[in-house]
Design a protein around this nucleic acid. Structure first.
Length: 271
DNA sequence: AACTCATGCGAAT
DNA sequence: TTCGCCTGAGTTT
């Protein structure tokens, strides 16, 4: 679901499906009708992700900006598409460069779906920290912010202007994997610790893009967890409050920090 | 079938 | 600080 890996996966998919060809864009729901009209019939030149933001670049210079928020979602199917089901904010249909197979995708429930001009895109990307999934990311930019801050590392990792693309699951899981207390102040984190956290985020989120799911638990830690329902994602601590830590058996702790659920193992991640 | 909660963020108050 | 988004997975009835 929508942390950075989801958006990068969607960007790749849309690049494959639609880039290099004319795209028909509409808004069956109507809330994006004006924006859709601006780009309908233009050629999609590039689809890319910046953190949790998805950008569709058109040859006209206009850019469609999508943010899925908590429950926005894309579905896709080969054309011809059936009539829209539910509240479809944006529907795209195109065949890309090869112009062979016509595909369509429907967007529902996004927080943002809007047309931006070049300068507005610059404003957007300028307020985002380095994204572990982008080649142009500079982790030192994040290090500067973190090592000068009194805020907790848990809060800093969720701040998109510090690191772009990390959400609540990757935050909880990467801190666990490094035995780091979520309460640790940014300024108490050493250069080496940040380097290791960043490297792990890059590796984990790349796996996330490839697999289309957040996969963070090492196989040797994934035995004997009878309390788990079949479909529940495997995590060390995320959404496991009250259950035993996979490493030490201590009850996983939970708190609400800045309005978001926070999970950690008090033993493996001591203050 | 109905209900609850959520991996996020911007707008409204 | 609270609300809206109005989907989807998991849980309860």
């Amino acid at each position: 679901m929508p942390e950075g890996h989801t958006l990068h996966r969607l960007a790749k998919l849309h690049q494959q499906r639609f880039a290099g060809g004319v795209v028909r864009v509409s808004s069956p729901q109507g809330r994006f009708a004006d924006g859709a009209a601006l780009v309908d019939g233009a050629t999609l030149t590039k689809a890319e992700a910046w953190g949790k933001h998805l950008l569709h670049h058109y040859d006209s210079g206009l850019v469609v900006h999508v943010h899925l928020g908590l429950y926005g979602t894309f579905t896709e199917s080969p054309a011809p598409l059936s009539d829209p089901v539910g509240q479809v904010r944006m529907r795209m249909i195109g065949a890309g460069k090869s112009a062979t197979t016509l595909y369509g995708t429907d967007l529902r429930g996004p927080t943002a779906c809007e047309v931006l001009h070049g300068p507005e895109v610059d404003v957007l990307t300028a307020r985002l920290g380095p994204d572990p999934l982008r080649r142009d990311a500079d982790p030192d930019r994040a290090a500067q912010r973190i090592r000068r801050s009194n805020r907790s590392i848990a809060a800093l990792l969720m701040d998109q202007s510090v690191v772009a693309g990390v959400g609540n699951v990757y935050r909880a899981e990467v801190l666990f994997r490094h035995g780091m207390s979520p309460q640790r102040p940014g300024r108490a984190i050493t250069a080496g610790e940040w380097e290791a956290l960043w490297a792990d985020l890059v590796a984990l989120m790349k796996v996330g893009v490839r697999r289309g799911a957040i996969v963070v638990v090492r196989p040797e830690h994934d035995r004997g967890a009878p309390s788990y329902a079949a479909g529940k994602p495997r995590t060390y601590v995320y959404r496991r409050a009250g259950e035993p830590c996979r490493i030490c058996g201590t009850t996983v702790a939970h708190a609400v920090l800045e309005g978001r659920n926070l999970f950690w193992c008090p033993t493996c991640q001591p203050d």
